[in-house]
Design a protein around this nucleic acid. Structure first.
Lengths: 355, 355
DNA sequence: CTGAAAGCGCTTACAG
DNA sequence: CTGAAAGCGCTTACAG
């Protein structure tokens, strides 16, 4: 056993958390050089680097994020900012971000907020001033909020937006990266599926028009139908707000009319579940009497009877990609990454009943 | 305008983030004294304190958490550690913790993990070694994991556990605080409700017996029935694992027998939803032919048709209480706080059908 | 390719 | 009740 090993043994017997000074001493170099290794500086002799890496591994040294952060003038925290009521969506996003953060030394700080509150911007300003975040990921719908984007630009916080509409609220910014979900692709698939099943009396329950997603989804549904010479019946075109209650009420209106639809397209699964309830109360069987499709592939989708045909977005992947844009050592020049939604066929869609 | 105000004006025109040095200079004291004010040290003259507070407010000084953390040898981050598939539960817990953290200068770092993985403990050790957290909150079921508790003790991380069973895995520890949910209270209410409705053929679909909650809930259901001289029929006592699928399968077994139950008690709402599906497929109407009750008041509960009678736990409040135990300046001597669940009656429970 | 000095913004001893 | 010095564990800017 050489002297260096002895010293390492001695250090280990102290059972103390290692610091950069321990590594420097044990490796016989200055702490500046250790710092270079930690930060992957190229200008370190290979042998020096190897020796230092060896010591780091032996004493399981992990640089203290607070000390690094203080010196760097930024933290190793990624903020996730959102105002979204869909719990599964939020949890998936968190998981996706964490997938990418694992092993990078960064942690995830969650920050739900209240878009409607007067305190919305001041509260976020306070949050951002307090922590000097490594970056933030903003989820729909507030990823479209101009005031929030301006605030982030002003504070020079790197950010990635997750949106349903390319280029929305866009302008030259400090690091305006974006993950865009193509909601319309899967919607077009879904409505084409319905047209191919022979449906012609097709009803619609739309999403909250304040959200870009509501427009994108409608655009997709219309396109898929148009492909087959079909369209939403103008007299069956109901507005909803993405809630179960709004889907239920719209479903009641649609299903109690004499010339009721044979299929109802819903802009999300929550409203589709509401439509199920209306159908159930009207004594209509799904899918024999009525076809229903939704969007989200929410947990409720395959718990409904029958399981709901819907459109799925790769939520977790999107979050992973968003985190990657923030973390990636070589910031890519691509600023808009796009992901497609896709149709998931289950038991709620079937051939149109014979007239 | 006096000289001090002038200087503050001058500082503000710099548009620079304030530091403790700015406050000290502007208030004409040492930074040590400013530090005393920040940390509420009693030994500061009232007039001195007021002057400093005034400057702090004027220039909106916020101490840098990283610098404070480095000096304090701990961060201002609260960790939330869990392995739980229920998205709404997780989101509610996060909201509750954040309710209490707001304004304290602490942030929430979420850390889902995989209880089943071989890497479970090593991964958590790495996490805890990296960050020097101000404290952690552990959610069920891993709040019962002995290895995790030992790890936290070894690393001297303050912790609060959220559990369904008082005293589980308990032993003298560094700061073994605990929020205990009395699942059994609401369960007893629920089963008493069923007994009072006249049901006598009562089936049961149980939770995963690896989780304390499964035992606590069963205990409550049994007690509520016993109050009225009733009990789960031994031949209708099904095991489940809290999943929709397990509820569905158990429901099928229960409902296809000739002497089927008139009421089914489920250890959670997911399984109750599975039982709904089995009932639907057997052509049984809820609640006319079959009464069903669940536990959780999950989002699905009032989206089912009819809405599910269930038991609600004040999840968000529990999280708030847990965070409070960690944050509270005067650590309370009470180490076990208890909260009750309660019955929520909806449309899925009705009088037993006439034999 | 490597290092000594100064600094990031705070706090803990130690004085007085 | 208040302060000057040293330190938390890192990095930057400057040398060499």
């Amino acid at each position: 056993m050489d002297k260096m090993t002895d010293t390492i043994e001695a250090f280990l017997s102290l059972r103390r958390k290692a610091t950069i000074n321990d590594v420097a001493r044990l490796a016989g170099v200055s702490k500046k050089t250790v710092s270079r290794v930690i930060n992957n500086s190229p200008s370190v002799h290979a042998r020096t680097r190897d020796a230092i890496s060896e010591v780091i591994a032996r004493i399981s040294f992990q640089p203290d994020p607070q000390a690094r952060g203080l010196a760097f003038r930024r933290s190793f925290l990624i903020g996730l900012i959102y105002d979204n009521p869909n719990a599964q969506y939020i949890v998936n996003m968190q998981m996706g971000v964490l997938d990418r953060l694992r092993g990078t030394g960064n942690e995830l700080v969650v920050h739900p907020c209240d878009w409607r509150s007067d305190d919305f911007i001041p509260e976020l300003r306070q949050f951002l001033e307090h922590q000097r975040l490594a970056g933030v990921i903003i989820l729909p719908p507030i990823a479209e909020d101009r005031r929030l984007l301006d605030l982030l630009d002003e504070m020079e916080v790197p950010r990635v937006r997750v949106t349903a509409r390319a280029g929305a609220s866009n302008q030259p910014t400090i690091s305006g990266q974006e993950i865009v979900s193509h909601d319309h692709i899967g919607c077009a698939e879904a409505s084409a599926h319905i047209a191919l099943l022979g449906h012609r009396r097709i009803g619609y329950i739309g999403g909250n028009l304040d959200y870009p997603s509501a427009h994108e989804r409608r655009r997709g549904f219309d396109a898929g139908l148009a492909q087959h010479g079909c369209a939403i019946a103008p007299d069956l075109d109901e507005g909803g707000n993405y809630s179960f209650a709004s889907g239920y009420e719209a479903g009641q209106r649609l299903l109690t009319r004499p010339d009721r639809p044979t299929a109802i397209i819903c802009a999300n699964d929550e409203m589709a579940a509401g439509a199920y309830k209306a159908a159930y109360e009207s004594g209509l069987r799904i899918p024999q009497d009525l076809t229903v499709v939704g969007f989200d592939d929410a947990p409720i989708a395959d718990r409904l009877s029958p399981p709901l045909t819907t459109v799925r977005l790769p939520t977790r992947d999107m979050a992973r990609m968003a985190a990657n844009l923030l973390i990636s050592p070589e910031p890519s020049t691509i600023s808009h990454l796009q992901v497609d939604s896709k149709l998931v066929v289950r038991g709620s869609s079937a051939k149109a009943p014979n007239p």
